[in-house]
Design a protein around this nucleic acid. Structure first.
Lengths: 209, 209
DNA sequence: TTCTATAATGACAAATTGTCATATAAGCGA
DNA sequence: TCGCTTATATGACAATTTGTCATTATAGAA
């Protein structure tokens, strides 16, 4: 998390840093990002950067959360709209998100994000997804799930299921990028259909009978 | 892939490099690995490294495949043993693998591998998994799957399903490492049970009815 | 004005990466 | 054995990068 010093900065300076973050993290994934390039773009002295952030990951996650706050969509609202149906929520969430991620102004950033999502930082993003809009995160989310439709009882099991659904979501996006890289034309509609398919499998099973 | 120059090296020198690779990639994930440390450990001049490999990723994937070849297990053999039952194959494969990955001599390497697996390099490892033991990869594997038990017809759909099952496998391992990091005691048996659960869900669905 | 806590700054050491000119060695035909 | 060609080996080097830290500057309170 940024230091209090960062938050005391003028809005203008904070924005310069966020803009530089967007630029650099859209250019390359986190691991390859250069603090030198960021401070150059934001036009702040190198020493100052370390006064605000512990390292580039610190800025990266702050920027991710900042982006996420801009976003109107949330898995929780989809869940509430779907009356607690977890699968319907994921379907709805994905269809809202896919377009923004692929065609929105931050497409390059998301591309690097999804192609380089690891289990480690995936947890971080996932929990941000559930913590949106002033809610308390997991608790609120769990409370909104209609368990009566699921072969699931414990929170731990729900956690596992969420992970599987989330990976399916990442898979879909990841495969989109890869296929596009290989020259294949993939539409958002097609992608959407594939994700719906994956959710169907998890909801009703892939085995016959 | 390593250059022919590398393969012309004496076995001893090749082994020195592989040992250094194991050491460094067990210490830190690929992104943080240092070529300087590797050449120091292998006691070869820096310039030579670039004569053999294009970069550290090149060595990394070569080492992964080398490790994988040592491994007796393969998803394909599990599939053949299970008479084409994809789910049974995954259950069997996982239970064979988990112990080796977690308690075997390369545990530290695998830990870095699974915690930092991205969609991009995940594909690479996944295809190595299917390409084991002199087989031709996807073709052989697809041919061994009993489609009559699946709500699936096309190869593309099978590819999607494989991705979901593979992510579930990565999830399970990833969550193991995270929980252990947090001080929680998790046994391999427990982990195994959770993965079986996940496969059950995908096989028969999570929804009631 | 003086003191104090907070923030800004950029020079610096340490490390890393990939390249390249130069030095070795190896193979081979005469 | 002598050249000659091709394949390897080697380590110095420029270019970056990272995180730190001593030094300045600023602002608010007494």
């Amino acid at each position: 998390m940024p230091t209090s010093t960062f938050f005391n900065l003028s809005q203008a300076k904070q924005q310069r840093l966020l803009a530089a973050a967007q630029q650099e993290f859209s250019r390359v994934p986190l691991a390859e990002a250069s603090i030198s390039k960021i401070v150059a773009a934001a036009d702040i002295p190198r020493g100052s950067f370390y006064q605000y952030f512990t390292d580039k990951a610190d800025l990266y996650y702050y920027y991710s959360e900042y982006l996420h706050k801009q976003d109107r969509h949330s898995l929780l609202s989809s869940l509430q709209a779907a009356d607690g149906d977890l699968f319907a929520a994921f379907r709805d969430y994905f269809s809202q998100l896919a377009d923004e991620i692929i065609n929105g102004p931050n497409a390059a950033f998301y591309r690097n994000m999804f192609l380089n999502m690891t289990y480690k930082n995936g947890r971080r993003v996932t929990s941000a997804t559930q913590k949106n809009h002033g809610h308390h995160g997991h608790k609120d989310f769990y409370a909104a799930v209609d368990f009566s439709r699921l072969k699931i009882s414990t929170h731990h099991e729900l956690g596992m299921l969420m992970h599987i659904l989330m990976s399916a979501l990442f898979q879909s996006l990841g495969s989109y990028y890869i296929r596009q890289q290989q020259g294949e034309q993939v539409t958002v509609a097609q992608l959407n259909q594939e994700f719906q398919q994956a959710v169907d499998w998890i909801e009703h099973g892939v085995a016959i009978n």
